[in-house]
Design a protein around this nucleic acid. Structure first.
Lengths: 269, 269
DNA sequence: GCAAATTTGTTCGTATGTATT
DNA sequence: CAATACATACGAACAAATTTG
């Protein structure tokens, strides 16, 4: 009934970290030091304890440097949908306006930098094809951007449009620059497409290799994926946005009706 | 530049699993068999490979039984907020009506069973106190339920109300049974509280021990937590609901405006 | 820029404990 | 109870990343 040693070691370290005895962002003793400290446990046993803590996100190890307690940054608060009480003159759709439809606010006073969109034409990924209701082999235009806030990578966002849109006249979609006036108004002017609704689906999964690298998350981290499908008249989808976020560093907020104005403070736990 | 052996083994197994060569839910070869198969690598090395796959959710190991590929159940689709185009006679709030405000739909034809609420009075957790704008030492009524769908645990939901509500007349809050007509109408009848808006905050974190046990998620899994704060007149919070879900087995959906009716199909990736 | 020292990462072998069949 | 299979633990050696002198 006794707990295994590596768990006892992990538990002891966890208590020290959470009590503040080992402050955030500081270096733990080295593995050999910990080995001596814990009654001569083998280094591999100490390593197992550290792996357990790492899988719970309490510490991070860096080759050649040491093991560090994770710095708990305030999660980025992302407002998904802000539905206000409908006024008579409003379409009442809420959100979804302009290029920056997911408003990453709650970060006033923070330095934001976005990479210019990386544009490509490729076969649609299966899920995107399904969302756009196009054949799996159809071509789509991808416009991908990386967003960094205060030096911390925040999101990988890819917009998907049917390639038909380009041949139909929306030729700027395949240009690398920003779209004049934003994608929403561009698509309306060029193709007469007007958004009447959208759906957001949120899921959590382990990161792909490139996602882990850019978002600086470890092997056992997770990403939150937001798939936004926009619909035009006759409930036809015409535009899919996939946003990949570091799940443990973000908080998604949905407001509905009348709520207080200050929705910036993250919930503590 | 060569990858470590345990990663190569993991990569090979991953490919076999994802190609379908090892079907879902089947048992992998035993560790000793894998050791022989991979050029006599040590058993510990094979175990490292398996741990890597386990941390990505591809396999699960059970002591004494073996290592099994995870069965990919269709994620439960949970509709968070369904905002319809506002009609003239509608408050336009969307969602938030009745006891079952987070409608776990998309599971038609599935057997649902909820535990009767477990009721307790306790000091408010820090985050709940902050949401309810009450002092940290204030008492709250907790009503906790466990929801199981088709034999698979789906959610742990706890409702928090200020204890003041009980002394003010809402005495049934501390009764274990269901509230007559749902909590929303009960609070309105007894205390005149009317909801004018709500906020949902979604975050992802490692599970607490009891959450991991009930939701049947492994050490390196994650839970998604939905904190819903309901507001009454003057933007005063009066009710907080915390829902804990197995992050990898759910998909959250938000509809806004006019969208197709069939929002049941999960996105594949 | 290089070499040495430090620290974590990978791999092996072995032994024993615990859960399941 | 016996056999099987995963879990824990130890010790050792070398590799790779990083810092320091």
């Amino acid at each position: 009934m006794t707990e295994p040693m590596y768990r006892r070691i992990a538990e002891d370290l966890r208590a020290r970290i959470e009590s503040g005895a080992i402050p955030q962002g500081t270096k733990l003793p080295t593995e050999t030091e910990l080995r001596d400290r814990y009654d001569g446990a083998a280094r591999n046993t100490v390593r197992d304890a550290i792996k357990l803590l790492a899988s719970r996100g309490l510490v991070e190890t860096r080759p050649g440097r040491g093991t560090f307690t994770t710095r708990h940054v305030d999660p980025f608060v992302t407002i998904l949908t802000a539905v206000r009480p409908p006024a008579a003159d409003e379409p009442g759709l809420g959100g979804g306006e302009g290029e920056d439809a997911f408003a990453e606010i709650g970060q006033q006073g923070r330095t934001t930098s976005a990479s210019g969109p990386q544009v490509s034409v490729q076969q649609a990924p299966d899920d995107v094809a399904a969302r756009l209701q196009i054949p799996p082999e159809a071509q789509v235009v991808c416009r991908r951007r990386e967003l960094v806030v205060d030096g911390t990578p925040l999101s990988l966002r890819t917009e998907y449009y049917p390639f038909d849109f380009v041949t139909a006249g929306a030729t700027d979609l395949v240009q690398a620059g920003s779209l004049p006036g934003g994608a929403t108004s561009y698509l309306e002017q060029r193709l007469g497409l007007v958004q009447v609704g959208y759906q957001e689906r949120i899921l959590v999964r382990p990161p792909a290799k490139d996602e882990a690298k850019f978002l600086e998350i470890t092997d056992n981290g997770r990403v939150a994926v937001i798939v936004r499908t926009r619909y035009q008249a006759a409930r036809r989808p015409f535009w899919v946005t996939v946003t990949v976020l570091p799940a443990e560093r973000v908080e998604l907020v949905i407001n509905s009706g009348t709520v207080p104005d200050d929705h910036t403070a993250p919930v503590v736990a």
